[in-house]
Design a protein around this nucleic acid. Structure first.
Lengths: 341, 341
DNA sequence: CATGCATCTGTGAGCGTTCACAGTAGAGAA
DNA sequence: TTCTCTACTGTGAACGCTCACAGATGCATG
């Protein structure tokens, strides 16, 4: 036997209409913008809604409109990254908020495995959500194509790589952020500047590396492939990369690391070899994650405007749902100077 | 103009019925368990479903059943905690997964402010979700009472404090975890064992402190209130608490900190005063968060079984929705010995 | 004074399901 | 044979909403 209070039958649009002394149609119009409704009728309906505690039944509405008034936040990353990377949190939270402001629920979907991917696609393709906020950085992700094919509005976070289909996305200016950091390292007198890149099948990996290369050239420094090591965004891979780097080019005096988490790994490895940061070697990170503050020493890094990214993702997705063309939004990054460089 | 492929009209139960040469009713019965359906009819319907790519329209179903087949994950915490605390991530992820296994979408709701709280309650009370996974640790949270009053099935994460209403919850055995840690500190020879508690309006704060006190008594150590300092689970508060502690009782040789994050703060403060961990002073944390591994030195801590907690939350919520009484589930914790104690 | 137009209002149909009910067929019991 | 019971199937009526349409009113225009 349930101990919960019994739920009363909730008020319907009929109840409100009767209470306000108007017809269903008028109540419906008030609910949907209030056009073609006299001020008196609107006032009566508003009052009736307040008295009855009426809330629209979204299922009934959705059944007829064919829209669900909800969007999915779809994460197609291996599990670990979700947890190690604090960016996801910020993104998820800000998207939830931006949607909540418009009274649109966010449905969280995590597709780490092939099986989960299938299940989520099935759900989305069935039209159960109006659009998808896609967080998936790996190139050749079949999800993007499938969603596009199904005609589901999608906005990606970060440029989707290796896609032939045109799809809207919002991204930080990775390339310019990398440029800014390398310029900073150069400006503080460093001349043997290495980099630890992210995976090269991710836009962040590719673009930040490109920015690094461009700036080296711009500063007249030689392009030395010994100075480029690839990581996978994990802390461990950062440490590993630092060891590789030190073995290859012991005279490295600065390293631009494509994520704060990897930068922490780099700092660990550097500390173990007895090098002082920033005296012996400068370290620059990327992301301005919480980890950047708690590392020893605090990390000079590039801040990504996650709040704005989320807000823009939601805005462009809703525009896309409303029928606009896919849009691309690139947002500026910001250099945050702390002690490590 | 939209560049997206046009969506075809999705198949309805009618289409499937025609295709299979049976009636709507029979298709519906197949969809809902297949009782009272002949094997031949079932096979025909299954084939027709496959051919047409039919997926039920959840809105139509929900409209008539009055169930939404979705669950809310409601977080009523100030924003910062959500991000600083990695437990939330694990919890969220595992709940999403456990629900996905049953084909139930999770709707993420974050209610940091009063305004958001109101909005989310409104949504839930309107019956848009079948139940709520509640993550809210502060006592006297009005949300709990409101949800109970509305008759919405709820399962909380952690014991809801200061509630007169009986509500189901799933929690780790905080008290026993604390006991285990303090016993470990005692067993390694510590005799002036202090504690940094969590906020005392949270179950974790209260229970872990109780476990600490019990074990002190059990070991025959005097209860010295100078050794008890309260934090707020943040890293900064840990550092602050450590300074207070050292000033009050410089002879402290061990400290049980009620969260890993605060323990990191404690380690920071200790390092600043030149004390060695664990030689001069042992530090025990709680949570076994990723931070525990990356701290210097790696933290001895208490692991909470988040996977099991999530699974149990989902299981008991679904049972509650199905009409069972509220249940309480307490899961055991585990001592993880690393270098700090 | 008729006509047109803009503003407002009510009505009926229908969205895709489930559910209750009526009905059929076949097996076994009386 | 007739009756009962079980297994199965089809049909109409909802569920609560929106949308198209028809009708009504008031005001400016010809």
């Amino acid at each position: 036997m349930s101990t919960a209070a019994s739920r009363r039958r909730p008020a319907t649009i009929h109840d409100v209409a009767r209470e306000a002394g108007v017809s269903r149609g008028t109540v419906s119009r008030v609910l949907n913008g209030g056009h073609y409704v006299s001020p008196a009728a609107k006032a009566a309906v508003d009052a009736a809604i307040r008295r009855t505690g009426y809330v629209v039944n979204r299922h009934a509405r959705s059944l007829i409109t064919g829209k669900s008034d909800s969007v999915a936040f779809l994460l197609t990353e291996p599990q670990e990254r979700f947890f190690e990377d604090p960016n996801f949190n910020v993104l998820l939270r800000a998207c939830t908020q931006a949607l909540a402001d418009r009274d649109i629920p966010l449905i969280l979907m995590i597709a780490g495995t092939e099986d989960e991917r299938r299940r989520n696609l099935r759900y989305i393709e069935a039209g159960h959500v109006d659009g998808v906020l896609l967080v998936s950085s790996h190139s050749g992700d079949p999800v993007v194509a499938r969603l596009h094919e199904a005609g589901v509005p999608v906005v990606a976070c970060g440029k989707p790589l290796g896609q032939t289909t045109r799809i809207g996305y919002v991204a930080a200016d990775d390339r310019d952020g990398a440029r800014e950091m390398v310029r900073h390292l150069y400006a503080t007198g460093r001349r043997r500047i290495a980099t630890v890149t992210g995976p090269l099948d991710t836009p962040g990996g590719v673009e930040r590396l490109a920015g690094y290369r461009e700036t080296l050239a711009e500063c007249g420094l030689p392009a030395d492939e010994d100075l480029v090591v690839t990581g996978d965004y994990s802390r461990a891979s950062g440490a590993e990369a630092a060891r590789t780097l030190l073995a290859r080019a012991p005279d490295t005096d600065a390293v631009f690391v494509a994520s704060d988490l990897m930068a922490q790994g780099v700092l660990d490895a550097l500390a173990r070899t007895g090098r002082r940061v920033p005296e012996d070697i400068a370290v620059g990170g990327f992301d301005d994650s919480p980890a950047a503050l708690s590392s020893q020493p605090p990390l000079t890094t590039i801040r990504q405007p996650w709040d704005r990214i989320s807000a823009e993702m939601v805005r462009t997705l809703l525009a896309r749902i409303a029928g606009e063309d896919p849009a691309t939004v690139i947002l500026p990054t910001e250099l945050v100077v702390r002690d490590s460089a």
